[in-house]
C-alpha cells in the first residue's frame, strides 16, 4: 500500500502534491500549536466532516453512485459502538469495527437490492433507507431510548475512547482523516480504481472487458459505509451523547455530499478542501447572522454554494489542478525543456 501511495504522488505534479500534503497536515500543525479550546473544538468538528466527506466520496466520487442517505451508516456506527459499550462494556475502539462491519453488511444488502437499476433509483432508495433507520432509532425505545438518546460516561479513559482534552480528540480525528485520505489515494490508483474509471467512462465497454460492475459497486458501497460508520463512533465519543437528530438527521447526508461536490468529487483532496471551506464559512455566517433574520445565514450559505458550483461545476480542486498544469506547461516552455508526458 505504501508503494502505491508513493507512486501516486509521483504521478501527479509536484506542486499539486505539496499543496495536497499541506492541506492535510495544516489542522495537525494548528492543533499542536494552539491551546484555544474553542478553536480545537471547531477543528475537531471540521475534521469529522472531512472524514465523512471522504467516506462519502469513495462511493459518490469514485463509483459515481450518489447517496443522500449516508447518515444511516453514520448513525449505525454511532449507535453500534455506543450500545456495545453501554450494555456489554466493549471498548468503542473495538465497537467501531463492529459498527463498520455492520454498516458494510447493510450497505451491501442495500446495494444488491438497488444498484442493478440504472438512473436515480439508487439515490431515491438511499433517502428511504436513511428514513427507515431513523424511524427505527426513534421507536425502538427499549434499546435506543428513542429521542432521549444515549449518554456516554464522560470520565476520561483511553480504552473507553474518552479524553479530557480537546486536543486529544483533534489528534485522533486527524488520524482518521489522514487514513481516509491515504485509503482514497490508494483506492484510486489500485486495480479497483482503474476499473472504476472504466465504469465511469463507459459502462458497456467496461463490462465487455470483464469488469463485474455490479459487484464492484457493491464492494465500493460497503467500504464507503464502513468508514462512514467509523466516523459515527468518533462523533459519539466526542459529543458523549447521541440521539436520532444528531446522528441520523437528513441534513448531515446532504452536508457530506455537498462538501465533496464543492471540493471536487473523484479526487482524494477535493472533499478535504470542500470541508475546509464550507465548515468555517457556515460557522462564520451563523455567528454573524444567526441572531438576525431567522434562516438568513442558511440562505446566504445556499447562495454561496450555487455560485461556486455555477462557476466551477466540477468543484474547486479540479480548477486548481488545471491552473497548475497550465502554469507548469508555460514555465517548461519558457525554460526550453521538453513537454512532460501526459502520464
Amino acid at each position: 500500500m505504501m508503494r502505491g501511495i508513493v507512486s501516486t504522488f509521483r504521478a501527479s505534479g509536484s506542486v499539486s502534491q505539496a499543496i495536497q500534503l499541506a492541506l492535510v497536515a495544516t489542522p495537525l500543525v494548528i492543533a499542536l500549536l494552539t491551546s484555544d479550546n474553542a478553536l480545537l473544538d471547531s477543528l475537531n468538528q471540521m475534521l469529522i466532516w472531512a472524514a465523512l466527506a471522504l467516506s462519502w466520496n469513495i462511493l459518490g466520487g469514485y463509483a459515481r453512485q450518489i447517496s443522500v442517505g449516508h447518515v444511516a451508516f453514520y448513525g449505525i456506527g454511532a449507535y453500534t459502538s455506543t450500545l456495545l459499550a453501554l450494555n456489554f462494556g466493549i471498548s468503542p475502539w473495538l465497537g467501531m469495527l463492529a459498527g463498520g462491519a455492520l454498516a458494510a453488511l447493510i450497505g451491501a444488502l442495500l446495494g444488491s437490492a438497488t444498484l442493478r437499476l440504472r438512473g436515480p433509483f439508487f439515490t431515491m432508495a438511499t433517502i428511504a433507507f436513511a428514513e427507515v433507520v431513523r424511524i427505527l432509532a426513534v421507536n425502538w425505545r427499549s434499546v435506543t431510548r428513542g429521542a432521549e438518546g444515549l449518554a456516554i460516561d464522560s470520565t476520561p479513559n483511553l480504552p473507553g475512547f474518552v479524553f479530557g482534552q480537546a486536543r486529544s480528540y483533534v489528534l485522533v480525528t486527524w488520524g482518521l482523516m489522514a487514513v481516509l485520505f491515504a485509503v482514497s489515494k490508494y483506492l484510486d490508483h489500485s486495480k479497483t480504481g482503474l476499473r472504476l474509471r472504466a465504469v465511469r467512462d463507459n459502462e458497456d465497454a467496461a463490462r465487455a472487458l470483464g469488469i463485474h460492475t455490479f459487484s464492484l459497486r457493491i464492494s465500493v458501497l460497503a467500504v464507503s459505509a464502513f468508514f462512514t460508520a467509523i466516523c459515527g463512533t468518533f462523533y459519539a465519543q466526542y459529543l458523549l451523547l447521541i440521539d436520532p437528530d444528531s446522528v441520523l438527521g437528513v441534513d448531515a447526508s446532504l452536508q457530506m455530499a455537498l462538501m465533496a461536490v464543492v471540493g471536487g468529487i473523484g479526487s482524494a483532496i477535493g472533499p478535504v478542501l470542500g470541508t475546509y471551506l464550507l465548515v468555517p464559512f457556515g460557522q462564520v455566517l451563523r455567528a454573524q447572522l444567526g441572531s438576525q433574520l431567522a434562516g438568513l445565514h442558511l440562505v446566504i450559505y445556499g447562495l454561496g454554494l450555487v455560485l461556486v458550483l455555477y462557476k466551477l461545476p466540477n468543484g474547486i480542486w479540479p480548477a486548481i489542478e488545471a491552473a497548475l498544469k497550465r502554469r507548469g506547461r508555460a514555465s517548461r516552455q519558457r525554460s526550453g525543456l521538453p513537454e512532460e508526458d501526459a502520464r
Binding site: 490508483h189 489500485s190 480504481g193 482503474l194 467512462d201 463507459n202 465497454a205 472487458l209 469488469i211
Partner: peptide
C-alpha cells in the same frame, strides 16, 4: 467506445486487469 479520459495505454491496461497482479 474508448475510455476517453484515459490514454491509449490505460485503455488497454483495463483489458489486462483480469490477468494482472497490479496496475503496474
Amino acid at each position: 467506445r474508448p475510455f476517453s479520459g484515459l490514454d491509449l495505454l490505460d485503455n488497454v491496461a483495463i483489458g489486462c486487469l483480469g490477468r494482472a497482479r497490479t496496475v503496474g
